[in-house]
Amino acid sequence: MPKYTYIVLTNPVEGKEDEFNDWYTNTHLRDALDVPGFVSAQRFELAGAQRAERPYPWRYLAIYELETDDLQKSVDALAERYNTPAMAISEALHPERLGLLFEAMTPRLEARA
Rank of each mutant, 00 (worst) to 15 (best):
G37E: 09
L33H: 05
G48Y: 09
D69M: 02
R30I: 10
Y82I: 04
F44S: 12
T68D: 11
V75F: 00
H28F: 00
F38V: 02
L66T: 02
N83S: 03
A79R: 11
F44D: 13
K73P: 06
S74E: 06
R81I: 01
A79Y: 05
E67C: 07
A41V: 08
R43M: 10
E80I: 08
T27C: 09
T27S: 11
E80S: 11
R54L: 10
D76E: 10
L33R: 07
W58E: 09
Q42W: 12
E67F: 02
P36V: 00
A62G: 10
E67Y: 05
F44W: 15
D34P: 08
A77L: 03
D34Y: 07
R59M: 14
D31G: 00
L71H: 00
A47T: 11
H28Q: 03
Y60I: 03
A77W: 01
L66D: 03
L33E: 08
D31Q: 01
F38Q: 05
G48I: 09
L71G: 00
L46I: 12
H28L: 01
L66F: 02
D34M: 13
E45K: 14
A47E: 15
P57M: 12
Y60A: 04
Y64G: 08
R43Q: 10
G48F: 08
G48C: 09
D70H: 01
Q50W: 06
Y60Q: 07
E53L: 11
W58A: 08
V39R: 03
L29M: 15
R54H: 12
I63G: 11
R51T: 15
L61R: 10
Y56N: 15
A32C: 06
D76R: 04
R43D: 11
I63K: 14
F44A: 13
L61A: 14
G48Q: 10
F44R: 13
